[in-house]
Nucleic acid binder design. Structure first.
Length: 568
RNA sequence: UGGGGAGUGGUCUAACGGUAGGACAACGGAUUCUGGUUCCGUCAGGUGAGGGUUCGAAUCCUUCCUCCCCAACCA
C-alpha cells in the first residue's frame, strides 16, 4: 500500500449503486450483477432511453456483471422488426455490448406453463366478461372493485378455457386470463390484473404460433427471473407495479419456475430536457405532421436524430453521467447537453473556415500574381492533427456578420476604415463599401498590409479582431443547416389557455444557408465533424455526397459578443 | 374520498446527525491570430413550511403544504 498517494476522491454513489454495493456486500446474488435494457420495439429510441441504456449497461460494467438487451415484444399489434434493428444499432452506437439478446417472446411457452400453474393453484382464472364489464368491476381510486362472476369458477374449468383460448377457439376480447389477487386492493394494479388477452395477430417473431399474448406486468418480471436478472431498473411510473411484479414471482412457492433469489425492481426518474418533448406519442406527431423531416431529423431528441446532428456517443455518455440518477422528477437543461458535445468536439474536431453568409471582400492592392497560400493548423492546441494549405487571393468571401457599417462600441471586426486580421493570412483595412440601389451592402473593398503576411504586423501593432475568410475563386458551395431548439419555451407543454403545444414550435429551428467553405472540405465524408472557426461545430449530413456538401450545425460556439451587444 | 412517490441555488446532483460541496447556467477578470478554448474569481445566509428531539438536524420525530404517477385487453 502506498501511503503517499492522496486519498482517492470518495466518488459519491447514486442510490442504485448503493443498493448494488449493499447486495454485493451481503452476497445476495453471490456477487452477480445482471441488468437488462428492455425496450418495446415500437418506436425509435430517444435520449431518455440513452440515459437508461447508460445506466443499465454502466452498472453491469462497473460491477463486473453484464447487461442483456431484451425486447419487450408482448403486443404484436404495435411492434415491428424495423424497430428492433434501429434499437440494436443505437445501443451499439452508444458504445455498449449486450451479454444476451432476448425477446419476451422467447419465453412465451414458459410464461404459458407458469400461467397454467397459477390457474391450477387457484391464483388465476379465465374471465368471460367484456372489457367494459371488467373496467366497471375494477372500481376506481375511491371505491373498491367487485368480483367478476367468473372469479370463483373451478380451476379445471379455467384451465380448459385457457387452453381453448390458446387453441384459438375464441375471438379477440372474448375472454382473458386474470390473476386472482384482491379486488378491494387500494393499489388498482392488484385488482385482479389481466395476464393474457386474445389477439389473433401476426407477431413479428413468433408469427401465428400464438393467439394469446401476455401482458407487460406478467411477462416482464417473469422474463427478468428467467434470465436471472439481479436488478431490474425502470422508470418511476412503474413504482406501483412493483407489488405486482413481486406477486407474480412469489407465487412460484416451490421454486420450480424461477431461480432464487428473485430479481427486484428499482425505479429512477426519467430524463426530460428543456425545449423539447420526449414522449413517443408526441415525437410521432412531430414526424407525422411534418413538423420535422423524420425520426432522424437533427432537431429530434432521438438517438438517430442526435447522431445525425453530430453528437458523439462519448458526449451522450458524459451527459448521462452528469445528469445523474435519482428519484425526483427532473428536467435537464439542454445547455448541459450542448456543453457535453462542445467539450468533446473542442478537443477532437479539426478546424476549418466556412463563410455562412457570404459578403465579397476585394483586396485592391493584391494582384492575382501576388496571391499565396497559407498553412493553417487543423487544431491550434494539437499539432499532431496536422495542417492544410488554404489559398488567399484578391477576391474573398467573409461573413456578413463580421462587417458593420457603423461599428458599435467594442466592435473588433470589420467596419469602414477599420483593420482586422484575416485569420492566418494578413491584416486588412476596409476602404470602401459598395451598395446596391436599395442601399444594401453588396461588396467591400480593402487593402492589405503586405508586411503582415501570415497575420502578424511587423511593427507589433495590436489588431483585436480576427475573422475567417475563404478565397472566392477556390470556395466550395455548401448547404449549411443551422439548427436551433425545436421549441421556444423551456417546457413546451406549458402553453397558454386555449393553445396546444404545436404552437410552441420554434419557427426558426432550422435555417438553411448557402455557405462558401474552404477547398480542403471537398472530400468531406458523411458523419465527419468539424469546427468551423468562430461559428460552431458541424457534421457532414448523411445526404451529402461527392460534390454535394451538406453540413448540420451540431452546436454553436459560445458567443460572448452577442451578450456584449445585447447589454449595450 | 384511495394508493404510490418526491421536495437542496436558475437547472441537475452530493452531503447517510457534526462547517451545504460539485457540474451546467449566469456574472466579473486574465490569456488568446477562433469575442472559441484555457485560467482565475463571484454567485446558496441556508435544504417546501411550522413544531419537536439533540451540544449540534438537509439528515431523526411530528403536523402541514406543494408537485408527480396510477382507474389500456399499452409498455
Amino acid at each position: 500500500m502506498s501511503e503517499a498517494a492522496p486519498a482517492p476522491e470518495p466518488k459519491s454513489l447514486n442510490f442504485l449503486e448503493e443498493i448494488i454495493e449493499a447486495d454485493l456486500q451481503s452476497g445476495r446474488h453471490q456477487g452477480r450483477v445482471l441488468t437488462r435494457f428492455p425496450p418495446e420495439p415500437n418506436g425509435y429510441l430517444h435520449i431518455g432511453h440513452a440515459k437508461s441504456i447508460c445506466l443499465n449497461f454502466g452498472l453491469g460494467r462497473k460491477y463486473g456483471g453484464a447487461t442483456n438487451l431484451r425486447f419487450d415484444d408482448t403486443n404484436p399489434t404495435k411492434e415491428d422488426v424495423e424497430y428492433v434493428d434501429s434499437i440494436r444499432e443505437d445501443v451499439r452506437w452508444l458504445g455498449f455490448d449486450w451479454a444476451g439478446e432476448f425477446y419476451a417472446s422467447d419465453y412465451f411457452q414458459q410464461l404459458y406453463d407458469y400461467a397454467e400453474h397459477l390457474i391450477r393453484a387457484g391464483k388465476a382464472y379465465v374471465d368471460d366478461q367484456s372489457d367494459e364489464e371488467i373496467k366497471r368491476g375494477r372500481g376506481n381510486f375511491y371505491t373498491p372493485g367487485t368480483a367478476s362472476p367468473w372469479r370463483e369458477r373451478p380451476a379445471a374449468e379455467s384451465l380448459d378455457l385457457f387452453r381453448r383460448m390458446k387453441a384459438g377457439e375464441f375471438r379477440d376480447g372474448e375472454r382473458v386470463l386474470r390473476a386472482k389477487i384482491d379486488m378491494q386492493h387500494p393499489n388498482m394494479n392488484m385488482r385482479d390484473p389481466l395476464m393474457y388477452r386474445i389477439r389473433h395477430a401476426e407477431h413479428h417473431r413468433t408469427g401465428d404460433a400464438w393467439c394469446i399474448y401476455p401482458m407487460y406486468d406478467y411477462a416482464h418480471g417473469c422474463s427478468d427471473a428467467i434470465e436471472g436478472i439481479t436488478h431490474s431498473i425502470c422508470t418511476l411510473e412503474f413504482e406501483d407495479h412493483r407489488p405486482l411484479y413481486d406477486w407474480f414471482l412469489e407465487q412460484d412457492v416451490e421454486g420450480k419456475f424461477f431461480r432464487k433469489p428473485l430479481p427486484r425492481q428499482y425505479e429512477f426518474a426519467r430524463l426530460n430536457l428543456t425545449h423539447t418533448v420526449m414522449s413517443k406519442r408526441r415525437l410521432l406527431q412531430l414526424v407525422q405532421e411534418r413538423i420535422v423531416t423524420g425520426w432522424d431529423d437533427p432537431r429530434m431528441p432521438t438517438i438517430c436524430g442526435l447522431r445525425r446532428r453530430g453528437y458523439t456517443p462519448e458526449s451522450l455518455r458524459a451527459f448521462a453521467e452528469k445528469v445523474g440518477v435519482a428519484k425526483r422528477d427532473m428536467v435537464a437543461d439542454v445547455a448541459l447537453l450542448e456543453h457535453c458535445i462542445r467539450e468533446d468536439l473542442e478537443a477532437r474536431a479539426p478546424r476549418r473556415m466556412a463563410v455562412l453568409r457570404p459578403l465579397k471582400l476585394v483586396i485592391t492592392n493584391l494582384s492575382d500574381a501576388e496571391a499565396f497560400e497559407v498553412e493553417l493548423a487543423n487544431h491550434g492546441e494539437r499539432p499532431e492533427l496536422g495542417s492544410r494549405r488554404v489559398p488567399f487571393t484578391r477576391e474573398l468571401w467573409i461573413d456578413r456578420d463580421d462587417f458593420r457599417e457603423e461599428a458599435p462600441k467594442k466592435w473588433f471586426r470589420l467596419a469602414p476604415g477599420a483593420e482586422v486580421r484575416l485569420r492566418g493570412a494578413a491584416l486588412v483595412t476596409c476602404t470602401e463599401v459598395l451598395k446596391d440601389a436599395s442601399g444594401a451592402v453588396v461588396e467591400l473593398r480593402g487593402t492589405w498590409d503586405p508586411a503582415s503576411k501570415g497575420g502578424n504586423a511587423p511593427d507589433g501593432r495590436k489588431v483585436k479582431g480576427t475573422i475567417h475568410w475563404v478565397s472566392a475563386a477556390h470556395a466550395l458551395d455548401a448547404e449549411v443547416r443551422l439548427y436551433d431548439h425545436l421549441f421556444l419555451a423551456e417546457d413546451p407543454m406549458d402553453v397558454p389557455e386555449g393553445q396546444d403545444w404545436h404552437q410552441g414550435v420554434n419557427p426558426s429551428s432550422l435555417e438553411v444557408v448557402r455557405a462558401r467553405v474552404e477547398p480542403s472540405l471537398a472530400e468531406a465524408q458523411a458523419g465527419e465533424r468539424y469546427q468551423f472557426e468562430r461559428t460552431g461545430y458541424f457534421a457532414v449530413d448523411l445526404e451529402a455526397k461527392p460534390g454535394v456538401l451538406i453540413f448540420n450545425r451540431t452546436a454553436g460556439l459560445k458567443d460572448s459578443w452577442s451578450k456584449i451587444e445585447a447589454k449595450a
